[in-house]
């Protein structure tokens, strides 16, 4: 498989970034959902949120890279069997996914940094706070983070179902292309 996208195929970088982000999104959602219910004396009480935040920051870096890569290296052309409506729906759908991803990550960052504290990433480095001191910032950001996270995983699920529909019903190569075929 070539590194870069061609007009007909996704390259290795795009494929790996796509599946890495997919894994991270569902993993972070599950981790986040589980960690907020932990009791005060659970051994994971401190490490689970640390892990969630650390992976979240790394995901943000990966997403920046992904957007950059997409700008430098346009996605392959749409399949010929995709009509104008399908093309529009896919553009809008992908836009929503990108918006949701950045929204979830930024709102999460604004919870933990609301009091000016930075976010420690695996104890290796710290991402400093920027926007702080909005009245009840952590509550507002927290509500946005929760709703957007639910919206994102539901929408990502629909995105997966749409890919399966292309594969099994339309019998086109939409899903296979995401493996570099």
């Amino acid at each position: 498989m070539q590194w870069r996208n061609t007009s007909a195929r996704y390259g290795l970088v795009s494929v790996v970034l796509h599946w890495l982000v997919a894994l991270a999104v569902f993993g972070l959602f599950a981790l986040g959902f589980w960690m907020v219910g932990l009791s005060y004396y659970d051994p994971w009480r401190q490490s689970a949120p640390d892990l969630h935040k650390s992976i979240g920051i790394l995901l943000f870096a990966v997403m920046l890279l992904r957007v950059l890569w997409r700008l430098l290296n346009p996605a392959p052309a749409a399949l010929s069997n995709h009509g104008p409506l399908t093309r529009l729906a896919s553009k809008l759908g992908h836009g929503v996914l990108y918006f949701g991803l950045f929204g979830v990550m930024i709102s999460g960052y604004l919870i933990s940094t609301a009091d000016g504290r930075g976010i420690e990433v695996f104890g290796l480095f710290s991402v400093p706070a920027t926007l702080t001191g909005i009245a009840q910032q952590e509550d507002i950001a927290g509500a946005i983070h929760e709703y957007l996270a639910w919206g994102l995983v539901i929408f990502a699920g629909l995105h997966g179902l749409a890919a399966l529909k292309h594969h099994f019903i339309d019998r086109d190569s939409t899903l296979l292309r995401m493996f570099g075929r």
Partner: peptide, 16 residues
């Protein structure tokens, strides 16, 4: 009650 402040935003969010 929302004006609680323990000098830690994540904890304050939890207390609220």
């Amino acid at each position: 009650t929302a004006s609680v402040d323990t000098n830690h935003a994540e904890r304050d969010k939890h207390i609220r």
